[in-house]
Design a protein around this nucleic acid. Structure first.
Lengths: 211, 211
DNA sequence: TCAATTACTGTACCCATGGTATGGTTTTCT
DNA sequence: AGAAAACCATACCATGGGTACAGTAATTGA
C-alpha cells in the first residue's frame, strides 16, 4: 500500500515526464493555446531544441499529455473500484464504498483538483487534431462503459425503485465530477467536488437500496 | 411568445454586439488565448483600429463577453422558472416543469449547446484579471443561490425522504449542466445534456415527491 | 440642415512568442 | 571506445497583441 513500483526511467524518459507534468499544470490553468513552449522549457530547465527533440510539435505534446492523463485516471479508477469490490461482495455496497473512496481521494488533493484535461481540451477543440479529439471521446466512452457495467451489476440484484436509464446514470458520474471540478475551481472551494460525489452517492443509494 | 423586444441599437452598439458574438463563438471552440483579434475583426468586417475603438484591450473584450453571457443566462433562467411557476402553484411541480422546459430548450439548440463561457474561463484562469474571475465566481454563486431558494420552497412543503444538504443539491444543477455540456461536446452527442437534466429531474422527484 | 459626435479606416511601428531548421556537442549506455 | 541518445546554440520567420496618430465617413441630435 502506498508504494508504487516506478519502472526505472532513462534520462530521456525522465525529461519527457517532467515536460509533460509541467505542461499539464500550465494547460489546466491557462489553456493549451496560451501555454508557451518557452515557459515550459524554462521551468523544465532545457532549451527549445531539447524540447523539439522530444516532441515534434505542440500537437505531439498534447497527444502525449492526454495519453498520460488518461492512463493515470484509468489506473485510479481501477484501484478505487477494485478496493470497493475487495471490501464488499455486494455490488451496491462495493460501489458505494468506491464512491466514498473517490470522494476522499478528491478531498485529499492538497490544493483541490487541478482540473480535467478532457474538459480543457473540449473547450479548445479547434486547436487539436483529429487524433487528440478522438482520444478524448474514446476515453469518455470507456469511462461511461465502465460505470455502466457496474450499474448493470447492481440493477440485477437491486431493481431500481424508479425506472431509470442506466446509460444516463453511468454518464452522470463523469458529468458531475467534471461539473464539480469547474465549480470548485471557479469558486475556489475544493470541497464542492467531494460534496457532489457524495450527493450522487446518496442518489444511487436512494435509487437502488431496498426500502 | 417568441417576440422579443429588442431595444434599438445604435450602430456602434450593433458592432459591439457583433464582435462579442463572434468572439464568444471563437473562444468557446479555441479558447481565449488562442482567439486572435485579427480573426475576430476579419469575420466582423472591421479593422484593428475599429476593434480597439470599442475595447481598450483583450481583457475588456473578455469582461464584456462575460457580462453578456451572464445576462443572457440570467434572462433564460428568469423566463423558465417564471413559466414553471405560472403553470403550477405547487413549488415542486413548478420546478419539475421548469426543468423539463430547460431540457427542451437545450435539446432545441440547433447544433447542441455551444459551451459554457464560465467553464471555458475556468480552464484558462491565468489569462484573466481579477475582475473577470470575480465575475465568474459571483455568477455561479448567484445561480446556486437561486436554485437553493427554490429547493427551500420545495422542502418546506415536501420534506425530503432522505436527509440532504440543500446547498449541495442546488450546486448539483449547475454541475450537471456544465458536465453534460462537456460530455455532449466531447462525444459530439447533443442529447447528453437533455438526458442529464431529465435524470436530475428524476432524482428531485424521487427525493421530494410523496410516496 | 448643419455641426458635433460617433464610428470608424489606414499606416506605421514595436516587441514577444510559436515554430522551424540545422549543425554541433555532450551524456549515457553497452 | 564507440554508437546512439540527449541535448545546446544560433539564426530566422510569421503571427499576434498593442500603441500612436492622422484622417474620414456616417449618425444623430438640436
Amino acid at each position: 500500500m502506498g508504494t508504487v513500483i516506478e519502472p526505472r526511467l532513462s534520462k530521456g524518459e525522465a525529461t519527457r515526464e517532467r515536460i509533460l507534468e509541467i505542461a499539464e499544470a500550465a494547460v489546466l490553468t491557462k489553456g493549451f493555446g496560451a501555454t508557451s513552449i518557452d515557459e515550459v522549457i524554462a521551468e523544465a530547465g532545457l532549451t527549445k531544441s531539447g524540447f523539439f527533440y522530444h516532441f515534434k510539435d505542440k500537437n505531439a505534446l498534447a497527444r502525449e499529455m492526454l495519453r498520460r492523463y488518461v492512463a493515470t485516471n484509468d489506473q485510479l479508477f481501477d484501484d478505487i473500484f477494485a478496493r470497493g469490490r475487495a471490501l464488499s461482495d455486494d455490488p451496491l455496497q462495493a460501489f458505494l464504498i468506491s464512491l466514498k473512496l473517490l470522494a476522499e481521494t478528491m478531498a485529499d488533493l492538497p490544493s483541490g483538483h487541478p482540473g480535467c484535461l478532457i474538459a480543457s481540451i473540449c473547450y479548445q477543440e479547434r486547436l487539436f487534431d483529429r487524433e487528440v479529439r478522438e482520444l478524448t471521446a474514446q476515453s469518455v466512452r470507456d469511462w461511461n462503459a465502465r460505470f455502466r457495467r457496474i450499474f448493470d451489476g447492481i440493477a440485477t440484484v437491486y431493481p431500481p425503485c424508479e425506472p431509470v436509464d442506466l446509460d444516463d446514470l453511468a454518464d452522470a458520474l463523469s458529468c458531475i465530477v467534471d461539473g464539480a471540478i469547474i465549480m470548485s475551481k471557479t469558486l475556489n472551494d475544493p470541497k464542492k467536488l467531494e460534496q457532489q460525489i457524495m450527493l450522487f452517492r446518496g442518489f444511487v443509494k436512494l435509487l437502488f437500496a431496498p426500502n
